[in-house]
Design a protein around this nucleic acid. Structure first.
Length: 335
DNA sequence: AAATACAGCAACCGCTGTTAG
DNA sequence: TCTAACAGCGGTTGCTGTATT
């Protein structure tokens, strides 16, 4: 529309406000009320654009603004609201009396975000960061080969195993590994055509991977596809999950998240049971994605309804290989 | 004591939605 | 219906104070 920023006009001051300017603005608004920001500077004698006046008033001078440190309760509220609303700072601010969107945004970026990252929580998705597990380093480890990988297939999410298998099969020229991969693939996919990994390892694309993931989850929502186990059997799970992993994930403060959400989007809930009540080692399921999460990291929402683009799929598949091994994770526990 | 790095926050920028003429 | 102005929002920048070397 060819609108030029109001502050481009010559003669208008920018930068920090002086006490005198604050006084002028406050006195004018006390008499005339807020609004008419375009004419306000001229009428009040301020050398500022209306937009600057409005921001100064709404973010700083407004009498109902609560200043000072955020209380614990406020911080908890921000985290919970952000998990639902995402970066809708104005919507969050509307639920925190006396706090401005700008103040909340700053506090999030400087305090809360860092703390969540430190605790291993993705501040965007409010879920544990799976990229802290370096799968590629597992695969390249001298003490780890594909045989070991296949041994642990009943202990961890086969989706991850499948990706690892693919990665190994595509990156290695080792014929033994390729045969192991094919055997594994046939065992897990008796009704699927065998991919030609020898000539083109990339045949099994991400789309196919994710489609298979959901086929697996239909099976009573269990990821232990090889062995049927009762996922509500706590003692059984403790045996299945290495203690170091238990410790690692139990240390993450998740109470607020699990309380807040009961299920994923309806589309995916038809394919998998609500997972908030079982402690299955399935990160996707235990920590449902906020409904309004701005980042399409949730594979269910992206792929089940078929709305995910190729770029999104590719991006996610690229990201999922960015892993790092937590120092506390001992691979021997898997063996 | 000086230089540098970092953290926190106020303010700005650019975009979008709404409204009035 | 179209256009321009207004208002609001989220992301980013840059200044300032503090901590570290």
């Amino acid at each position: 529309m060819g609108r030029s920023p109001c502050c481009d006009k010559t003669g208008l001051k920018k930068g920090p406000w002086t006490p005198e300017e604050d006084l002028k603005l406050t006195q004018y608004i006390q008499i005339h009320g807020p609004g008419n920001w375009r004419t306000l500077p001229k009428n009040s004698g301020l050398e500022r654009c209306g937009k600057s006046c409005r921001l100064r008033w709404t973010n700083y001078l407004r009498p109902d603004i609560k200043r000072g440190r955020f209380s614990f309760e406020e911080e908890e509220s921000i985290i919970q609201l952000h998990s639902v609303l995402g970066n809708k700072w104005s919507a969050i601010a509307a639920r925190l009396p006396g706090r401005t969107d700008n103040e909340i945004k700053n506090y999030w970026n400087t305090h809360i975000r860092k703390r969540l990252l430190k605790n291993g929580i993705d501040p965007v998705t409010h879920r544990p960061r799976i990229d802290l597990i370096d799968l590629s380093s597992i695969l390249t480890s001298a003490s780890f080969n594909l045989s070991n990988l296949l041994k642990i297939q009943t202990l961890v999410n086969p989706q991850v195993l499948r990706l690892a298998t693919l990665l190994a099969s595509s990156s290695s020229s080792n014929q033994e590994n390729k045969e192991l991969f094919l055997n594994n693939y046939i065992n897990q996919n008796p009704n699927e055509p065998i991919p030609n990994v020898a000539s083109n390892p990339s045949n099994l694309g991400c789309n196919q991977l994710w489609n298979q993931e959901h086929h697996m989850q239909v099976d009573n929502g269990q990821y232990y596809s090889g062995n049927l186990v009762n996922l509500n059997d706590q003692s059984r799970q403790e045996k299945l999950m290495p203690s170091c992993l238990n410790d690692h994930y139990n240390s993450i403060p998740l109470q607020n998240y699990s309380d807040q959400f009961t299920s994923q989007a309806s589309d995916s809930s038809t394919l998998q049971p609500s997972n908030t009540e079982n402690n299955n080692f399935n990160i996707d399921s235990v920590f449902p994605t906020p409904m309004s999460s701005p980042t399409p990291l949730d594979s269910s929402s992206v792929f089940i309804n078929g709305s995910g683009t190729e770029d999104e799929i590719e991006s996610y598949c690229n990201d999922i290989f960015k892993f790092e091994i937590p120092e506390s994770l001992d691979l021997e526990d898997f063996m």
